[in-house]
């Protein structure tokens, strides 16, 4: 399905009439409600659209259960702009003022919960960390590509989570010090080495951007490999476990699938050098294999 070709269906001031006709055609109580609601709210975008300070958003809409949303479409929203406004702010405004059925995940508003990765003007970005003023209008907001759309901007994350959990994403060691209050030492250098990899917020922007993952459903993907890197490079785990981890990431759908396109690194909102981490693991693997010959 190409979402780009869907004919935008407008619900805003520019063609109120045609939108109304569409709604009249549908007769469920919900459609009636939506129509009334739009009637009430149309005034606010009308007023604000005349002022210069509005942003025009085109937002992807789809709901398998609702008659006029079963065919994916784009809705237009004109949101009054204030300085510093993010794409997430604009979506919240549109939902709270214009259409309460507009659905997207979001929580912390500060780029740490990783809920609101969307495909914004053709690129994976976090809604909360993307300033409207950095974008060209109309701002096109779509769900993350290569993942199944559940509704509007919500995608099914299960497969991404499965990949994350396939790399034994937890610390393991056989080298804990004696004594309950004794910490395991870690050099500052080693902490520094894994630091970037520990910043991952599981937003799936990288995974969505990766062509290899799109073509090979079993490919672990950049986020999961980065998670494996975080542990493989942690000196506290010890050499035996490192070998164990190398075996996991060297599997058929592991690091060797990466073709070094850097798309994951480009879109990562936490600036994690994902491709470099994957490359480093490949080098590690080569070294290891030579050693065992």
């Amino acid at each position: 399905m190409s979402t780009q070709e869907q004919k935008p269906k407008n619900q805003t001031e520019t063609d109120t009439e045609s939108a109304d006709e569409d709604i009249i055609a549908a007769s469920s109580p919900q459609q009636r409600r939506l129509r009334e609601k739009r009637g009430r709210e149309i005034e606010s975008p009308k007023e604000t659209a005349e002022q210069e300070d509005t942003y025009h958003l085109k937002v992807f809409r789809y709901d398998p259960e609702v008659a006029d949303k079963q065919e994916p479409r784009f809705d237009d929203f004109h949101v009054p702009y204030r300085q510093g406004m993010t794409v997430l702010d604009a979506l919240i405004y549109a939902r709270d003022r214009f259409d309460s059925s507009l659905t997207f995940r979001h929580s912390c508003r500060q780029a740490i919960c990783g809920s609101d990765a969307f495909f914004i003007n053709g690129r994976q970005r976090l809604g909360c960390r993307t300033q409207l003023s950095d974008l060209e209008e109309p701002v096109r907001v779509e769900p993350l590509p290569h993942q199944e759309v559940v509704k509007d901007l919500v995608v099914d994350m299960e497969h991404f989570y499965d990949q994350m959990e396939a790399v034994e994403p937890y610390f393991q060691t056989n080298e804990l010090p004696e004594g309950e209050l004794e910490e395991q030492r870690q050099s500052r250098e080693n902490h520094e080495k894994i630091k970037m990899s520990t910043r991952c917020i599981w937003c799936a922007a990288c995974y969505s951007s990766c062509n290899i993952a799109a073509g090979d459903n079993e490919y672990l993907g950049p986020a999961a490999i980065n998670k494996a890197y975080r542990f493989a490079m942690d000196e506290r785990e010890g050499e035996d476990l490192k070998q164990h981890r190398m075996r996991i990431i060297e599997q058929e759908h592991g690091v060797w699938r990466c073709q070094t396109q850097f798309s994951c690194t480009m879109v990562c909102p936490k600036d994690i050098p994902l491709t470099e981490h994957i490359q480093e693991l490949k080098r590690e693997a080569v070294k290891n294999n030579l050693k065992f010959w």
């Binding site: 469920s28 709901d63 059925s101 659905t103 509704k151």
Partner: peptide
């Protein structure tokens, strides 16, 4: 009242 009639991911 809840305007969104859907059972799917109804954040409303």
């Amino acid at each position: 009242y809840v305007a969104d009639p859907s059972r799917t991911f109804n954040t409303d």
